[in-house]
Each structure stands twice: as C-alpha cells, then as structure tokens.
Nucleic acid binder design. Structure first.
Length: 499
DNA sequence: AACTGCCAGTCGATGCGCAC
DNA sequence: GTGCGCATCGACTGGCAGTT
C-alpha cells in the first residue's frame, strides 16, 4: 500500500484544475444507481477476488483500473492500524530546481513518477497476494460462521452470538462513532469493551421501562411522559406544588427536548436510582456491569440518548394515533412488514454463506457473496396460501447476471442437501425446511449494487441503462472469475427443486 | 398427545439524511 | 444542533407443521 503521504498529495493535486487526476471519481462514494432504496450497503470489492491476471506491463501508462482508497477519507480503509496522513509533505513543497523544467511541471512530473511507482508496487503486491488474501478471508468467514453456531445467550438476553452476517455488520458499525468506556483508556477499544458497553446499554433500556412502570414502549400512553406547558412552566420556576421526579414516581417529558431542565433532572434521578440498584441491591447482576460504568455521568449520558428513542416511540404510539389512528396503524404495519422481509433476506444470506463455507468449489466465491450482502438476495417471496405448502419462490434481481445467479442457485442446493437426512428414512423432527423453488421471474425494481465486476451484471439490463445510471453504477472494468460455475444458461427450476 | 423446531411477526434499537 | 422520517438490524416469541 502506498504511504499515506501519497494520498494526501493526491488530494491536494485534485485542487489544481489544469491537472485533473485520473480516476478521481474513485474517491466519490456518494453516487449509486437509481432506483436505489437503500444506501446502507456499499461494497468495496477491489482485491480479494480471483480476478484474471493479464500480463502486466513493466510500467502501465495509466492506473485507471486500480481503485484509489484514501485512508484519510471517510471511505473504507485497507488497513485499520494505518495512522491518518496529517503531516505528509505537500506536493507544493517538492524541490523546484530540476534542470530544464518549469517550477510547475517539475514537481508534477517528479510527483507523478514517484506516485506511479508506489501505486504500481501496490498493484503488483496486491495481485501476487490475491490467492493468499482469498484464503485468509474464507478462513475468517468460516471461523465466524462456526462460532455463530456455538454462541449461547444468557438468561437476561443480554448476550448473543455473532453470525457471519452480523460480523459484516459489526465491521461496518465499527467505523461509526461510539462512546465506549474502554477498560484501559490508553489502549484501543477491544471487542470485550464493545460487548460490555452493549450489555450496559441494555440495562439502561430495561431500567427505563422499569421506572416508567411499563413492560414495553407500546404502552407509553400509560406511562408518565406527557407534561402540559403549565406543568413545565411551574417546574422550571420551582413553584410550590409543581411536579417532583423521584424513582418511585418517575416521569419524563416526551413533548419537549431531552435537554430540557425537566428531562435533565429526570436523567439525574435515573442515574442515582440505577447506580443504587446495581451497587446496593444487585440488580442486573448477571450483566456484570464493570466498575467503570458505575458513576452518575456515565449513566446519565446514555439515558439521555435513549430518551430520544423513547420520544420517537411516543410519537408513534401516542401522537400519531391521536392524530389519525388508521394512518398510524397502516404506517406501523408497513414498517413491520418491511422489517420482516429484511430479516428473511438476512436469513437467506446466512444460509447461503453457511452452505458455501464447506463446499469445495463454491468456497472460492464466499468473499464475493459475503460482500454482496442482503441486497443481492432474492427480492420477493410469496406463500401459497391455497395449498398450505411452505413455498417461497426465489425471485432474482433483474440486474443480476446469469453467472452470479447460478452461484446463488448452487448454494441453495447445497444448503438443502445439508439439511436433508440421508441416513434411514426418518425425517428430521419438527417443521421441514421451507421449499424455495427458483423461478425465472426477476424483480426489475430491485436496487442494484454499485461497483461490482462487469460480468456480475446482466448484460441486457446493463445495456438499457441511461449514461447517468451507468456512471453511477461504477462498474469495475474487469470480469470476475466465475470459473467452472459460469454456465451459459441458468438451470431449470425443476432441476433446482430436485434436492 | 407430546414434542420439536422453523418461520413470520413483533419489539427495541441504531444510524443516516434532510429540513429547519 | 435538533427533530423527524426512513431503512435496517438483532433478539425474541407465538403459531403451527411435522414427527414420534
């Protein structure tokens, strides 16, 4: 990987309008293909795939096929332990006494020469290590798939396993800002710190419900969380007879800001009670809350943050219902339906990854499918209510190429074979696996994933895009090596159902 | 009838983008 | 900075199909 100074220099170069940097769009992560309904998943697929390796020239004239990942930007980083490039030399600070060249051109040529050397080194090293990278990634995914099966949950529901999918999500979330209280403030936040923080937050949520005397937020209407303006005024002026917040008569104000004096005082009462309960009365003992969390401010802050969620739920179950009950119910159902559909796609992705992890030939495609995420999973499912069969036909996204669909198809067959009982005639106890017959239908409304190799997209679908969409799609100018799985035509649905 | 376990639905929660 | 809407996630639960 080129040194951080190179990226700093490259960024500075982009500010020079007369010398546009090739492939500067690689730094742009904002665009995506319409109609994109979700922008949460933006895969970065530069190196780990078994891409074909054409003979490399000794010094390529343009590095346009190599994605530039700037470690100083907010985009994905190739190395987590790389320090941010802050003190690298600016291109303008280069010596300007190169004979025969102007002050502007000399540093530019020198800069480009040096930069290209570093970039070329990086590309060559990356390609030579491609196989090793794939095997490492497969090993990592495999390890997380294994551990997900062994994970147990504690009685409070405070623990939980980490599936292959959640592993990807946790990697994504790790880039977001979290206010962990690390065991050792001088060391980086560890996974144990994160787990302890998560457990602590769950206790905060649970205690909030306890003090509000409700079992769930759908009962917020019954909790003390609505104050009139008169009550607020009286409280803030400290008038006699105004509301008093105590642990036994706890209340929050969901109609005003969480930073209001009333809510701030509520947070203080909450922190005092929470601290007392965990230190003197051994509440949440199974959660094993670390000592460093046992102070007022560390408890107050997450409670106030949680209050924002409580307020949003209040708007949903009280305010919206009061305004228009029918509309509120429709909105709630729509949200739940979407949520349910999403979790099914997660299940499908995990099932496919599990099946591929142990398969001798499909294993090599694990990084690709893992990076595709749920957005590439079947996009529509429906149950046959008439015959009462558990049948969910897979409908593939229109943008998906035949080769890519074939991989997913074969993974489904492997998963079905793995769950089937081959010894004796006894079926597995319990409900049998759902039938997931493949269909030839495609979902034209499915959002396409940007930045994939060319042959991951359906050719005819690609041809129908307008130029702006093609540009937004950022198709990699290379083909993914599907190997022996790149069959010329999709298998028939009947074949797929035989397993 | 008892048991098992899959699966859709439910719930609590988080993060992002946009408008003000 | 804040509120709000939206998308999405993980954990959990009840219904129920299928087996013993």
């Amino acid at each position: 990987m080129p040194p951080p100074q190179f990226f700093t220099a490259l960024k500075n170069m982009q500010a020079w309008p007369q010398f546009p940097v090739p492939n500067s769009t690689a730094l742009d992560t904002s665009s995506c293909l319409l109609p994109v309904t979700s922008t949460s998943h933006t895969p970065s697929i530069p190196a780990p795939f078994p891409l074909p390796t054409p003979p490399q020239p000794a010094r390529p004239s343009t590095p346009t096929s190599t994605p530039i990942i700037d470690p100083t930007s907010s985009g994905p980083r190739m190395s987590s332990d790389l320090p941010p490039a802050q003190s690298g030399p600016s291109p303008r600070a280069w010596p300007d006494d190169i004979s025969g060249l102007s002050e502007v051109v000399a540093p530019l040529l020198s800069y480009f020469s040096s930069g290209m050397d570093m970039l070329l080194d990086s590309v060559q090293k990356s390609q030579s290590k491609s196989h090793e990278t794939i095997m490492k990634e497969i090993s990592t995914i495999h390890k997380h798939l294994s551990t997900s099966n062994l994970a147990a949950k504690d009685q409070l529901g405070l623990g939980g396993g980490e599936s292959s999918y959640s592993f990807r999500q946790s990697q994504k979330k790790a880039t977001k800002q979290c206010h962990f209280v690390a065991a050792d403030p001088w060391l980086p936040v560890t996974s144990q710190d994160k787990q302890e923080h998560s457990v602590f937050l769950r206790c905060i949520r649970k205690h909030t419900l306890t003090l509000l005397k409700i079992s769930g937020y759908k009962y917020l209407r019954n909790a003390k969380c609505t104050l009139s303006q008169q009550q607020v005024d009286q409280y803030e002026q400290g008038l006699p007879g105004c509301l008093q917040i105590t642990a036994t008569d706890f209340m929050v104000d969901c109609l005003h800001n969480q930073d209001s004096p009333f809510n701030q005082d509520a947070a203080t009462v909450f922190a005092e009670d929470f601290l007392e309960k965990i230190t003197r009365h051994s509440w949440y003992a199974s959660a094993k809350i670390p000592e460093r969390y046992c102070n007022h401010e560390t408890i107050r802050t997450p409670f106030i943050a949680h209050l924002a969620y409580v307020k949003s739920r209040y708007r949903e179950v009280v305010t919206a219902v009061d305004e228009d009950p029918d509309n509120a119910r429709r909105a709630m159902n729509a949200r739940l339906q979407k949520s349910s559909h999403g979790s099914r796609k997660v299940h499908l992705l995990k099932m496919r990854l599990d099946a591929m992890a142990d398969h001798p030939t499909l294993q090599q495609h694990l990084p690709l499918i893992n990076d595709l995420g749920t957005q590439a999973m079947s996009s529509d499912e429906s149950e046959d209510d008439v015959r009462r069969t558990i049948s969910y036909p897979h409908v593939y996204p229109a943008w998906c190429s035949q080769q890519l669909a074939t991989i997913l198809w074969q993974a489904d067959d492997v998963a079905a074979a793995n769950t089937a009982v081959s010894i004796g005639k006894c079926k597995k106890v319990g409900t049998q696996l759902q039938l997931c017959p493949h269909s030839t239908k495609v979902n034209t409304a499915a959002a396409a994933l940007p930045g994939l190799p060319r042959n991951c997209y359906n050719t005819s679908w690609l041809a129908n895009l307008i130029p702006h969409q093609v540009k937004a799609l950022r198709v990699q100018d290379m083909d993914y090596n599907f190997g022996s799985h790149s069959s010329p035509s999709l298998p028939t649905p009947s074949n797929a159902m035989q397993s």
